[in-house]
Amino acid sequence: MKPGLKVGLIGGGTMGSTHAEAYRVLDNAELVAVADLVPERAQAIAARTGATVRSATEIIADPSIDVIDVCVPTYLHRDFVVAAADAGKHVFCEKPMARSLKEAEEMKAACDKAGVRLGIGHVVRFFPEYIRAYNKVHSGVVGKVAVVRCTRGGFALPTAWKDWYANYEYSGGLVLDMIIHDFDYLRWLLGPVERVFAKGTRGRDYNRLEYALVSLKFKSGAIAHVEGSWVNSGGFHTRFEIAGEKGLIDYDSRKANPITLTVNKAGGAPGVPVPASAWAESPYTTEIRNFINVLDGKEGQIVDGNEGYESLKVALAALESIETGKPVNL
């Protein structure tokens, strides 16, 4: 058994599996238990990590566990985070923080009352290209920022447990689930948002093709545009362009692939080129490392409950604007 903090993971889907890998790498935390409603998924993670498969209730009640990592669908975040805080556990919770501001407030209050740390998984703040760009902007490379454009997506609507991403009441769609990453990054880069105006396919003729365009005005004066797409345009990609008084930063993940692999299928049929990523460390690991090191007193926290709450506010404002056709002031 490794020294350090004992972690229980609730939810073994895509993000839960990814977080489980991070704990394998860290030397000051250990994943000791995993819970999932689908036993095979929990068993697969347990087999890879040495964790024990248990129920969520058992994990939260176990006094030997220090940290609960919550990777369940968005609409269930509040229940698990509050229960974990009430049991005196530190909590790391996937983004978006919650489905509503009220739920997020309850989560913050529970953690404050219990005196435990809450971290929210806004992992984009840990991606090297986004960190580099942030540092370049703050070292004055573009001067005062004027207009920022962000893009995220380009793949069909994700399918998951009970198709919860497709259920607006559960997930909030791509604005709340995915481009909240960009809202969070933009808030980090530019400070508070003044006004949001947005349009999306939801409420029109949605049919599982979700696409949204969001216009943001920041208190700094900067203007931003965020594109989110769950429509297939060749696969997941991200872009950002940061234009300022004296310079411009331009990033397109499709142009920053170190490896493009094309393998012919059986019979010599041409295959589909698939970009492979090449990280020294997964940003998901860096994100978890930060939270664990915060608990160890080694690092300052990058995304706490308040940060998660403020980014949630922007995403919910965009959803409100899509629904009402009016701008929303923050």
């Binding site: 004027a146 207009v147 454009r149 105006f197 947005a198 349009k199 999306g200 029109r204 003729d205 365009l213 216009s215 203007i223 545009h225 234009a243 004296k246 310079g247 411009l248 056709g325």
Partner: peptide, 23 residues
């Protein structure tokens, strides 16, 4: 700098960035 968000006929929406922001 300018960013337009527009509603069109046929239930189509669009954005257009008109900024003079190439350094």
């Amino acid at each position: 700098c300018g960013l337009l968000t527009m509603e069109l006929t046929n239930n189509v929406f669009a954005t257009l960035d008109t900024s003079w922001n190439r350094p």
